[in-house]
Amino acid sequence: MELGMNAGSSREALRRARDEAELLIASLTRDLNGVIDASLSSNADDEHDPEGATIAFERAQVASLLAGARRRLADLDAALERLDVGTYGTCERCGLPIPAERLAVRPSARTCVNCAS
C-alpha cells in the first residue's frame, strides 16, 4: 500500500464509495422500473411511434447507467478484498505502489497511472 495511506482510512473511503454506489443502484433501479412500467401502460410502438423511440432510448440509457453502477460496486468489492489480503494500493501490472492521490480519486484503482495509460 502506498505510503501515507493507512488501511483504516482506505477501508473507510472504500466503504463510503460502496455505500454511494449502492444508493445509486437503488435509485437507478427505481428509475428503470418506472420507465418499464410507463412503457407497459403506454400503447407506444417503439418502432413506429416517435414517442416510443424516446421511451426505448430512456430505458436503454437508464439500463446502461445501472450496469455501470453495478460494475463500480463490483470494483469496490474487489478493492476491499485486496485490502483484506494486503495488496490494495499495489499496481497489478508493475507491482509498484499506486499513488495516494490516485486512490483518493479512484479508490478501486488496480493500476498505477503509468500502467493505466
Rank of each mutant, 00 (worst) to 15 (best):
E2M: 12
E2Q: 01
E2I: 04
G4K: 07
N6K: 12
G8F: 11
S9D: 13
S10T: 15
R11T: 07
L14C: 12
R15G: 07
R15Q: 04
R16T: 13
A17H: 15
D19T: 09
D19C: 04
E20D: 01
A21S: 11
A21E: 06
A21N: 09
A21M: 08
A21T: 12
A21Q: 10
E22I: 06
E22L: 13
L23I: 07
L24C: 14
L24H: 01
L24Y: 04
I25A: 01
S27L: 14
L28D: 03
T29A: 10
R30N: 07
D31K: 09
D31R: 15
L32R: 08
G34E: 06
V35D: 08
V35T: 10
D37W: 00
D37P: 00
S41H: 03
S41W: 01
S42H: 03
S42I: 08
N43S: 10
A44M: 00
E47S: 11
E47K: 10
E47M: 08
E47C: 04
H48E: 15
P50E: 02
G52I: 06
G52A: 05
T54P: 00
A56P: 06
A56L: 14
E58Y: 01
R59I: 11
A60E: 05
V62T: 15
V62L: 15
V62K: 03
A63C: 04
S64C: 04
L66C: 08
A69Y: 07
R70T: 03
R71F: 02
R72L: 14
R72G: 01
D77F: 07
A78H: 12
A79T: 07
A79G: 09
L80H: 13
L80S: 02
E81W: 15
E81F: 13
R82C: 05
R82M: 05
L83H: 12
L83K: 12
L83C: 11
L83N: 13
D84Y: 05
V85M: 03
Y88V: 06
Y88C: 12
G89Y: 06
G89D: 09
G89S: 07
C91V: 02
C91Y: 11
C91L: 11
R93S: 08
C94Q: 02
I98P: 01
A100P: 05
R102S: 15
L103K: 05
V105F: 07
V105D: 02
P107W: 13
S108F: 15
S108Y: 15
S108A: 15
A109Y: 11
A109E: 09
R110S: 12
T111Y: 10
T111W: 13
V113F: 12
V113T: 14
N114K: 13
N114W: 04
C115G: 00
S117M: 00
